[in-house]
């Protein structure tokens, strides 16, 4: 059960810190959990794991392919590996390794791909991933989660640690706005209706959830009733929720920090089309573009991923 925070403008603990603190706690209680880092401990906060669990912190150096393969080998030996690197290197760069040595071989590899989409900020276009979800969606059995805030991200890490298989967590390293009250729990593969509404359905994931809720409240002021779904598990998609919440809506919008090709919007579109849901629909996301450098705020605007963009799209659809 989840409970929404009273103060959505406050930010929580930086998400990388959340991931590493949670993982460290999990490792305190489960000696099968190991953590592999590709020379980014200083960037990810995993030094705390290195200090607390030096035997199960494995420094791989800047060798992501080998990191994934080594993780797969550790899984063969019964360990539960978590790995971290920046999103593009945790997806594009090691796709065949994750795919074959991980998923295809029925191994367990938990992946934290940090700084997805516009959150890359100063690292720029080379370090941007707008396609990580598309890649992992095409990988049989892989599970994809996009953490909306600190509370949810902590829950995701704890959940991954219990499961076998390939799991991908995309989340900012920095602090993001709070959505959920501490202690909230979720269900993997089940989306959350975080705001009810009757005119328009907004389906989103990750830190854009805060922007979606901002947009929904502003739409409400203009007499448009907007429902917001937190689809934090992008795969497996909560198809039942998409269909039940689509019922009776005048418009449906997906809103994601990812390319409109292959991500959450594509997944939702497939469900709508295959179930003959004939409602005006738009995918808001990155329109087949490469990333670039800038502040996260600037990039969010540049790629049309703000509450203003969402509001404009909703209004256009309802015209």
């Amino acid at each position: 059960m989840f409970k929404l925070t009273q103060d959505r403008n406050a930010k929580g603990t930086p998400l990388a810190k959340v991931v590493m603190q949670t993982l460290n706690d999990v490792m305190d209680h489960d000696d099968k959990v190991v953590f592999l880092e590709a020379d980014l401990a200083g960037a990810s906060n995993s030094r705390l794991i290195e200090k607390a669990h030096p035997d199960r912190f494995i420094q791989m150096g800047i060798a992501e392919a080998n990191m994934v393969g080594t993780a797969a080998g550790l899984s063969v030996e019964g360990f539960k590996p978590f790995i971290h690197t920046f999103g593009p290197f945790a997806s594009r760069r090691v796709y065949d390794q994750i795919y074959l040595s991980g998923a295809y071989a029925h191994n367990t590899v938990n992946v934290y791909g940090s700084d997805p989409g516009f959150t890359v900020a100063a690292n720029g276009g080379t370090h941007t991933t707008f396609e990580d979800v598309a890649l992992y969606r095409a990988m049989p059995t892989a599970v994809i989660c996009d953490g909306a805030d600190a509370v949810q991200t902590e829950w995701i890490v704890r959940e991954f640690a219990k499961l076998k298989g390939v799991h991908y967590l995309r989340a900012n390293r920095k602090d993001v706005r709070n959505i959920y009250e501490p202690g909230s729990t979720f269900e993997l593969g089940k989306g959350n209706v975080v705001k009810e509404g009757k005119d328009v359905l907004i389906i989103t994931a990750g830190q854009l959830l805060a922007d979606a809720l901002d947009a929904a409240e502003r739409l409400e002021e203009e007499g448009i009733s907007a429902e917001v779904v937190d689809m934090f598990t992008i795969k497996p998609l909560d198809v039942d929720l998409v269909l039940s919440e689509a019922k009776g809506k005048k418009a449906i919008v997906s809103f994601e920090n990812h390319s409109i090709i292959g991500g959450l919007g594509s997944a939702v579109a497939e469900v709508l089309a295959e179930n003959t849901v004939a409602v005006p629909f738009r995918r808001i996301g990155v329109k087949d573009q490469f990333g670039q450098v800038g502040t996260a705020d600037w990039l969010q605007k540049e790629f049309g991923l703000t509450a203003d963009d969402l509001i404009a799209t909703v209004k256009e659809l309802l015209k």
């Binding site: 080998n66 393969g69 080998g73 390794q97």
Partner: peptide
């Protein structure tokens, strides 16, 4: 997943080297 006695899936060349490293690391742990 298919053959008794086969401990690691291979075929995409190079990948077995890392898996073996991970298995050996696990044995040592």
């Amino acid at each position: 997943t298919k053959t008794p006695g086969v401990d690691m899936t291979t075929g995409s060349l190079g990948q077995g080297t890392s898996s073996a490293a991970g298995i050996a690391y696990g044995q040592r742990l």
